[in-house]
Amino acid sequence: MRKFKYFMLVLIILVLFGNVSAQSADEILSKADSVMNAPSDMVAVEKMILIDKDGSRKVREVKIYQKGSEKRLIRFLSPADVRSVGFLRLAADRLYLYLPAFRRVRRIASSVKNENFMGTDFSYEDMSQSEYGKDYKPKLIKKTENQFVLELTPRAGADVSYGKLLAYIDKSDYVVRKVEFFDTDGNQVKILTIDNVKKIDGYRIGTEMEMKTVKNGHRTLLKLSKIQFDQRLKDNIFSERNLKRPE
């Protein structure tokens, strides 16, 4: 009887704390997602620095228009030979590309989502990812002094190509500071680090990101500047016609 009491106690503790931890993981992720998607829209200039394993660099500048978590327009400003190349995302399966040399907008198949976006280490999927909670189920695996470490596994039916993510979320402001990406076999494939978190127009945002591909050592550094939030961007900005418009 006494043994049974102990058993019940252990069970209660397990259920209770297990539950608390699951809840808090969902909460943490949901807070992180909401921090990420708090502004209604954003316009910014982004410097992309592509760094090869041997240290050689390529620098590009783009202008980003983002509205909600779905609509995004990216237009290249430099270098000259790719100026005006544009990328438009209206939904996960509606991606468009504009190549100014041919004056034509082409739709890109959604199946390319795990291909790299324009020579960077970000895939189309990474570029489009704005709400982790939608596609991934979180599990709190570690708490450090400053960070929560969530293990994110794909939800049933989620159309994602990773097998697992480890997200490091800042305890103070719920900004995601680091994400490790793993393939379906559990091998680490990429590492995203987010730095230089600033408060702009009341929103907290990491203005420097680095994505590193583990196998080839290639890195992409993104530096945001001229960030403007809540500009009341019209829907027609996110159109094929506007995609062709020079900046």
Partner: peptide, 15 residues
């Protein structure tokens, strides 16, 4: 044009 080459190249340069 060089722009034409660069635009196409752009899609595959990380391959």
């Amino acid at each position: 044009t060089r722009q034409g080459v660069s635009n196409l190249w752009f899609l595959i340069e990380s391959e």
